[in-house]
Computed example of a mutant assay.
Amino acid sequence: MNPCHVTKAELRRGLLAVRAGLTEDDVSETGPVLARRALELPELASARTVAAYVSVGREPGTRALLDALRTRGVRVLLPVLLEDNDLDWAGYEGADRLVKAGRGLLEPDGRRLGPDAVAEADAVLLPGLAVDGRGMRLGRGGGSYDRVLARLEKAGTDPALVVLLYDGELLGEVPAEAHDRPVHAAVTPSALHRFSRG
């Protein structure tokens, strides 16, 4: 399947089908590797506040990274999905403070900080299914993170935008629309990938 001749929906279906073929061991073994690799990024290693997310299902694991950041004294913000698909935020206070929410998500049970809290982040981890050489990210299509990126732009902040992926999810081209914003880096188990911030 040539990515530049498929729609976002077709590309999502193909990438999700590959992820569905991963075993639980594949997923659990990848998380700690991704955490070590991600912390090689100076933008994450030096961040005081990181907006992240809790991986679910066959997503590349974030939990080891969340705990590593918290151990370093980093303030970690996690999303809370609102009814309109926008995101509120709350602080991560450990895995035992995560609760099941709608759509199979896990969310922190602490005080809600408001949708604008993401503007305090030095780095933002974005979920994604793929990224291309321009840094264009393919998300799941819900639009939640498009709103986050628009909110950051409106606030005039410039946090490092980072996506965690499996090897093989760096593509030649991802279909992009006018509102799509590139990420600055992608972390895969085997490498760090940087994209121009120009």
Rank of each mutant, 00 (worst) to 15 (best):
N2Q: 13
P3Y: 05
P3R: 11
C4M: 05
K8T: 04
L11V: 06
R13N: 01
R13A: 15
G14N: 01
G14M: 09
L16A: 02
V18P: 00
R19N: 04
G21W: 02
L22C: 06
T23F: 00
D25S: 14
S28D: 02
S28E: 11
E29M: 07
V33Y: 01
V33D: 00
A38Q: 08
L39A: 11
L39N: 06
E43L: 10
A45N: 12
S46M: 10
A52V: 12
V56M: 12
R58H: 11
P60L: 06
G61P: 01
T62Y: 03
T62I: 08
R63M: 05
R63T: 12
D67A: 14
R70D: 10
T71P: 00
R72S: 13
L77S: 09
L77E: 09
P79E: 08
V80F: 02
D84M: 04
D86S: 15
L87S: 10
L87E: 10
L87M: 14
G94Q: 15
R97H: 15
R97F: 07
L98Q: 09
L98H: 11
V99P: 00
G102W: 08
R103C: 02
L105H: 09
L106D: 03
D109F: 00
D109G: 02
G110A: 14
G110R: 15
G110C: 06
R111Q: 14
V118C: 04
V118Q: 04
E120H: 11
D122E: 15
L125D: 11
V131I: 13
L138R: 11
G139P: 01
G139C: 05
G141K: 05
G141I: 05
D146M: 08
V148R: 01
L152Y: 13
K154S: 07
G156F: 03
G156S: 02
V162M: 00
V163F: 01
V163A: 06
V163L: 01
L164A: 09
L165R: 06
L165T: 10
Y166H: 15
Y166L: 04
Y166F: 15
G172E: 14
E173G: 03
E173D: 02
V174G: 04
V174A: 10
A178M: 02
A178P: 01
H179G: 05
D180N: 12
V183R: 09
V183M: 04
V183Y: 04
A191P: 00
